[in-house]
Design a protein around this nucleic acid. Sequence first.
DNA 1: TATGAATGAGGATTCATTCAT
DNA 2: AATGAATGAATCCTCATTCAT
Lengths: 217, 217, 217, 217
Amino acid sequence: MANGENDFQELYKETLKKMDDLTDKQKQILQAALELFSSQGFSETSSAQIAERAGVAVGSVYQRFQNKQALLVAVLTPLLTQALPQAVDEFGTTAFQHSFDDVESFVDAIVPDRLRFIDKNYAALKLMADQIIVDDQGVINQLKAAFTNQMSTNVVPNIKRLQKAGKMVDLPEDYIIQFLFTAILGYFGKRLLNMPVNMTDEIKHITAFLTNGLMKH
Amino acid sequence: MANGENDFQELYKETLKKMDDLTDKQKQILQAALELFSSQGFSETSSAQIAERAGVAVGSVYQRFQNKQALLVAVLTPLLTQALPQAVDEFGTTAFQHSFDDVESFVDAIVPDRLRFIDKNYAALKLMADQIIVDDQGVINQLKAAFTNQMSTNVVPNIKRLQKAGKMVDLPEDYIIQFLFTAILGYFGKRLLNMPVNMTDEIKHITAFLTNGLMKH
Amino acid sequence: MANGENDFQELYKETLKKMDDLTDKQKQILQAALELFSSQGFSETSSAQIAERAGVAVGSVYQRFQNKQALLVAVLTPLLTQALPQAVDEFGTTAFQHSFDDVESFVDAIVPDRLRFIDKNYAALKLMADQIIVDDQGVINQLKAAFTNQMSTNVVPNIKRLQKAGKMVDLPEDYIIQFLFTAILGYFGKRLLNMPVNMTDEIKHITAFLTNGLMKH
Amino acid sequence: MANGENDFQELYKETLKKMDDLTDKQKQILQAALELFSSQGFSETSSAQIAERAGVAVGSVYQRFQNKQALLVAVLTPLLTQALPQAVDEFGTTAFQHSFDDVESFVDAIVPDRLRFIDKNYAALKLMADQIIVDDQGVINQLKAAFTNQMSTNVVPNIKRLQKAGKMVDLPEDYIIQFLFTAILGYFGKRLLNMPVNMTDEIKHITAFLTNGLMKH
DNA sequence: TATGAATGAGGATTCATTCAT
DNA sequence: AATGAATGAATCCTCATTCAT
């Protein structure tokens, strides 16, 4: 699976381009908001700050977006409805276009790719995490929807096949997915905690652990 | 390992009691702050709100605590320096007082206990998560310290012994701990996402997965 | 005296038609402004609101009218310089084309007509009242001018004649007019206060009172 | 009937004094708000302006009053519930403590007093008028209540007696009151219109007109 | 210590007005 | 002439913090 194409920033910018109804300045505002919300958090970012970074007047922010909350939604929506599903999609189809013969190659296909994905999309992911923490149900629901959808169409079949072939442990598919993700999100956690990370090692060990844990011995 | 004794609320209240220099009102303030910070986040909580919930005047908040940030520190400090290490300690010593003969009993000792710990301390954990997201280095560092310390003295030896006995996979100890924690934190994530959780199932499957993943086959 | 012809809306629209330099959109703007200013007040009405109701772009409002104040003037001017004098005129000439033989027929000619006039022009009158309250000298002066002029040429002579004939009380003419108007404006006040009004009763009693009060016994 | 005691300013200040829960600064705020709202209108008055005139910080306005609207209510409430009824009451009881033998003395008792009342309370009355125009139902309802109450207990009986004695015209009492008030309010209108007024003349003519109009000939 | 009124800087939002298309 | 995006001053309001009682 090729990397570098499926990061949010790229997909986000493309999504923005497609929004014909958005003026250049409005795109700059969204871009600035994404950056600031991600790095400082939503409440810690002021309208003035966004306007300044976007190089526009404060009023311009409110010309298009009813209020700060609406701006957040406008930032997150394409992320959640376009970039994220597309990334998930790409992940699902690319990673699972082949039928894997064993758990090891299955895990091998996922782990390195997802770790690099986290690296590239650290800012956007942090923003989503922030929203989840502050209990934004809208964000939560869209996240769930994006995942449930893609997982069930692409990942679940692969899991089932491996299980039927007697090569993968007989756990419910949603748990298989859960373990896959939590193991990988450990890397995200380490970055949040400012822990030193070595990508090579992470890949190596996470892969080893997941392979061992999901394989039927 | 006995439950119900090692939750933060309990430990936190005990910690508060020991602080002789704190008046009753000040303790109420800390309690109110913990609750509000946890449920709404730090920036979304106003001093007036804290005062109201604590049943004191706004000025009383600032009588003892220099500013809101200091109040946050005052809330987190006992959590991070007393309750958390104590919980970790309790976890380390209780869970590892015996020398486990195999990975399964090792995992069995940890998983149910930690899941229940999450349930009990959901609010406090959410508060910490919030602080991690907004990049509070102080919190991050204290979290790290509390863990590193306890883990290395109690958990690591157990891991090493199991590895030497050829019963546990030969991964670096910190990764073993990492996988242990991420698998368990999946439960915390599910709660954050408001997903329906069934404790019995969670315990069963997480245990199975971790046992399989950490066991040397 | 025929009703239905002398209401502001009609006269206003005719006035607008005559303004050849006004585009259709600009007429719509004036119409929308009149409606909104009347119902919500000047300060409570925004340019955007006017534009929306007029079905034009915000900029179009300012294409023709220098600023909001100028728009108000543009709304009021034809009202005060065209519609109002014309209404007053119509009132003066129609109501006083005959020489009334007694106070009763004099009052009878005025009261019903003016009450219906108030009903029809409630919005415009309210707008003028609003302007008087907020101390708009321009409006005040034009109102005065429109009245003084018409009154002195049409109403005053009639009053004088009735007085000379010994049928009307010997009060200064301006006071006669004042009492005539205030008694009638009581109806306007009742509407402002959302009081239930019965036109027939109002006419009956106001007429009776005025007749009695202005008649020389 | 003694004048000078029943003006709003006096009654308002006394009312304020009785409000023990109000601090000096808060009273200054209410006083400043009354003055500014009266002279410029509600929407034309900014919080900063009020604060400045009151000699306090902007925040102090909002410490006590939830918002500007609430401040308006706080200004109007004592006016409508204390000062106005008290003034009406004083009017009712003083003016009608005697049983008038004829319409002339009845009118004589009312007119001069009310005209002077208007002079003294011009600001407050203008504020109320402003609120009526902008459709404030709360104000309207309280105004109605204050009047209905006092009128029915004090004025109506006097009217009925004079009517039974065959000295006053047989119009419904509410219309008698209406004519009384509108004739008097003409004076208020003249002041609004910045017309030159001569109190002596006004009293003389209004009295003459009302006497004539209400007397049964 | 406790109180809560007072403060004023800061932040979100509105809105009249301009101007390039 | 019409448009509506852009502007930024002005406004309302919040809130952490101080301080006199």
